[in-house]
Nucleic acid binder design. Structure first.
Lengths: 184, 184
DNA sequence: AGAAGGACCAGTGGTCCGTA
DNA sequence: AGAAGGACCAGTGGTCCGTA
């Protein structure tokens, strides 16, 4: 009974689009990706309101409970692995929309795929952290939209590694200086 | 090989003591109980410092990880079920030490056991919550010592139930007024 | 090959109940 | 009977890898 072909089996894959650009064909653009993060936040707010109403524990982040609620509410296109995968990209969008838009344009011009764009999003976020004492948790917490997302493990590790590199290159006697550049 | 009898098999049970009073015999007093909460906070601080050093996720509360760390550090007398059992008692001690001390004195005079004292600690904490908009989570969060402990389920439920009773008795036409008193 | 997401896993919050 | 705490359980954060 797969001949029907009516139900979309999976979400269309993302492609790199500029801000405001609509994806053509069986693709989804990055504005849509970022919109999903806002939707999750909305679902979190609903879960919080219900919890407060009932006097139950109130989640502060987008938890499994929130993903379950979203699914139950019909948002089948939202799932945890996808949302977690792109959190640092959304972080760049939140923290420096200009830089995020510029990177999108650049990656699109180079014809890079979504994976390459995703990788490229790490560096600017780490540089923002460098300018704020390397405290990526504080940066997430201070931003209303971002604060509901867990800091991705890899982003945290990159910040930690870079902080140590920066310390070495600025404090070691005759430091080579090569550690000033991110090694990724 | 149980003839040795050297190792203390379990902690001595708690008895109701007044503030500053040392428990006699094979018993522990309430100052000691509250001291355990401070020790757990210290262990949490150590776990946090290690996590920050390593650039890992940093717990904000006394978690399983902290209990494991405490045990590894030789504090075998600290365990999760015990600490969780008396959190609301410690909350009263933190939020209104005068009232806590008065209750200890009163329970001791009546010759009540530790379980009865523990039960009696709920009511004054719920009344503190009543005076602060019933938001027990906010009360815990606002207090430096208390903020590292999860709000106990039963305390949250009592606050919720009482809030609803208070609303009914103040808004229902011809409210009976009997709901002004806690039913426990 | 590149990407979406079902499903698994180690370790969590919570507390019961066999123990002393 | 009253109390301390080992040990279990349902549901979590995290992400791999079989799938399309």
């Amino acid at each position: 009974m797969r001949g029907g072909g009516r139900e979309r089996q999976r979400e269309h894959p993302f492609i790199v689009t500029e801000a405001g650009e609509v994806a053509r064909g069986k693709k989804n653009g990055l504005d849509y990706l970022f919109h999903l993060y806002e939707q999750c936040h909305d679902f979190l707010t609903q879960v919080q309101n219900i919890a407060k109403e009932r006097g139950e524990k109130c989640p502060t982040k987008v938890t499994n409970q929130v993903f379950r609620f979203a699914k139950k509410a019909g948002a089948n296109y939202i799932n945890k692995p996808k949302m977690r995968h792109y959190v640092h990209c959304y972080a760049l969008h939140c923290l420096d929309e200009e830089a995020s838009n510029a990177l999108r344009r650049e990656c699109k011009l180079r014809g890079e795929n979504i994976g390459a764009w995703r990788q490229a999003c790490y560096r600017p976020v780490v540089e923002i952290a460098a300018g704020q004492g390397w405290d990526i948790d504080a940066i997430f917490s201070a931003h209303a939209q971002l604060s509901v997302w867990y800091v991705p493990t890899k982003l945290r590790q990159l910040c930690h590694t870079e902080r140590n590199n920066a310390t070495v290159s600025s404090s070691a006697s005759g430091g080579s200086g090569t550690a000033d550049h991110l090694p990724y």
